[in-house]
Design a binder for these strands. Sequence first.
DNA 1: GATGAATGAGATTTCATTCAT
DNA 2: AATGAATGAAATCTCATTCAT
Lengths: 229, 229, 229, 229
Amino acid sequence: MASEHQSPVSRKERDTHIRQTDILNAAEKLFAAKGFHNVCMEQVAEMAGYATGTLYRYFKNKEDLYNELLRRKLEGYLQQMRAASAKESSATAKLHALLTCKAHFFQSNAPFLTLYIYELETKPRPSLGLCVPEKCAKPYDEIINLMKLVISEGIASGEFVSVNPDFAVSAITGLSNQVLLDVFRSGANPADAAVFIHRFVESALLLQRHPVTNRTRKMSLSKHGQETL
Amino acid sequence: MASEHQSPVSRKERDTHIRQTDILNAAEKLFAAKGFHNVCMEQVAEMAGYATGTLYRYFKNKEDLYNELLRRKLEGYLQQMRAASAKESSATAKLHALLTCKAHFFQSNAPFLTLYIYELETKPRPSLGLCVPEKCAKPYDEIINLMKLVISEGIASGEFVSVNPDFAVSAITGLSNQVLLDVFRSGANPADAAVFIHRFVESALLLQRHPVTNRTRKMSLSKHGQETL
Amino acid sequence: MASEHQSPVSRKERDTHIRQTDILNAAEKLFAAKGFHNVCMEQVAEMAGYATGTLYRYFKNKEDLYNELLRRKLEGYLQQMRAASAKESSATAKLHALLTCKAHFFQSNAPFLTLYIYELETKPRPSLGLCVPEKCAKPYDEIINLMKLVISEGIASGEFVSVNPDFAVSAITGLSNQVLLDVFRSGANPADAAVFIHRFVESALLLQRHPVTNRTRKMSLSKHGQETL
Amino acid sequence: MASEHQSPVSRKERDTHIRQTDILNAAEKLFAAKGFHNVCMEQVAEMAGYATGTLYRYFKNKEDLYNELLRRKLEGYLQQMRAASAKESSATAKLHALLTCKAHFFQSNAPFLTLYIYELETKPRPSLGLCVPEKCAKPYDEIINLMKLVISEGIASGEFVSVNPDFAVSAITGLSNQVLLDVFRSGANPADAAVFIHRFVESALLLQRHPVTNRTRKMSLSKHGQETL
DNA sequence: GATGAATGAGATTTCATTCAT
DNA sequence: AATGAATGAAATCTCATTCAT
């Protein structure tokens, strides 16, 4: 009795999820590489290994597929960012953790970075012609807010210089996006990029620099050891 | 001055140029607001005050119109950046000048900023599905290079900390884009944003901070005087 | 009666018939409510309580299901009409019986009335794009013929005024369809409608009116008693 | 100056109207012959002598084309019916005129009769899956109302027997539709059908028959002279 | 040279039907 | 025998581009 339906999700539900994931993975690669309007459903279907019509069993339409893709990725990103931030107590440590987490996340989700910048960072004009749907805007806003809270905390505690937190969030966001994209495109060492980002941001924000340098040494990203920064 | 054929360009050529500019201006607004694929040629024609067919007399096709739009804007931007950089001698001053110039340029060309980020900063996947054509890539690369040279110079002269110049260019580019976009969207004070960008970049790059603070005061962008940074 | 194989139809055959009827009942409701092309096989299957594929075990395809639905209803209708007509001897009485029977039949088969009008009364253009198949046309023609014979009989016997029997059949058919449809849609009293139809037809056809009025009183449809006509 | 733009409608407007009419004519034939869902836009385009895309310059979509077709025909029909009714004073004469007008109209618009029955007389389930749009329902309701008013008037004036006017309208409508359809399909003589309809309706409704018979003689429909009724 | 109506290729989407389980 | 996921053919609709006026 216990053996037949062991897991709480039925096999059918799992199958459905697998299929959806197949399709979303294909879609991610294509959309990231070519953009929403330059990819047709037939291509997604072919890359996912299904017939065109099959996509419509799993997603209402092309737009829904695209939004679901963004939403799932964002939710994952948000969870990791939340966890990273929650583990630390000082604003300095939290900021460091958030940046490390971002670098990690986009290292493992490189194609998504382009979509992330296109559809969210430059928000009011997404490729769809429609605005980003609620379900995508919400996690995105929460990610932005996570960063903003840390900045405000750091300013309040005297760890950070006093800056406009909105500008600071934009700056940190923009610079890390661009550096990570640079790594993605040029094939540079991601660990170096992470270290660079940390130093750059911390130089600009921290009132005293040295403790950071020490933390940096622990970074798990460093695959290569050499630090060029 | 009174003579009819004084200038080397004939009236016909001038007319052609005027019409192209009419069309490009309409196109810029629409493409920036909605994205390449969400704008149709009829809309561009209508906004420019011509018939659809007329567009094809001045541009080979939609893509060509779009690329020409990017190219012209970029050439203008490049010239201003070149001039800004050329006026200064120290790397510190040049970097400062480039950032001021960028802030100025995109303040006057706000809609173009979105296109710039979409089509160039995230390059390998422009909306067109094709890569950015040579004629756009060249000025863009030169702008990037201008910045990279200044960074390298600054490092060599001991003005800047020793960093990977490619990362530094990406960081400065990304952060200034995002902060300026933020201003464009939120309606924040552009002068504040410019000051913020200067301080942020200089804190991260300069070996000694104080001289910069003084330079900042001269900034012509400041309309409002208050400096929150 | 207790024996398992008493009847000439095996259990299997009976099961098949039950399932076909389940499906046809679901189909009737849906097709009548939405029309052939606005109903998909999945909906029919769901309403019938089977899987989509199962429908194809009992009907060759969607069209066949539809035609079979029409055919079965028509056969039932035809039998009732035949019986009604056979019970009477004078043309006047037969006509009266046929109209009563029609009113009864469509009162119990209200959704079918729409299909009947759509697919048969306006014949050369059924929803299918193809013409009504033989197996539907035959019972329909016989129903029409039943009426035509009665009319001709009545004319020959001097009970009815001399009219073109084809026109008369069309007229009686069209008027009763429309009045019954009216009842179906407006929720008017079906007995009143039946009385109305009798009087209207008889006023137009009978040479002497009064006997009819008396007959009308016996009508079993009258649930309410009041006669507004 | 007066010569160039003589008519109040520009040539462009006239051209547009011609094109729309071309398309509507082709559409009418096809839709009447095969039904909405069995006709594709390519067929309509081909029969009208245009490319598929051209249809969309003149009609928003297939449904709009269909509804516009119904609306235009209905408006024409309504106007003729209104005029016919207005010319007469007694209810008897008005009813006669309305029936004559209907017979004339559908004699000249035979293919439309099927659409009329399908989409309007059996209203709550038009082929579109959507209900008939306001712009079609309105003229249709007015036509029905025209008839209902005449019936009520006739009853009030003592010209007609006392009947439920809604049933009477349904009956007259249904019988005339079906008889006219019969003529359309069988190729019977339309004048005979018209006479038949008049007699049938008048026998059923009028308290005294003779005056009608006289009016009937004037009927302009009679091409053939022979009266079989 | 300018116009804008017509074109038709190409994309999205639906759904009757099949077939492996 | 029943299932229902997968299929892919067919229909709708859009819009960049052409070309007769």
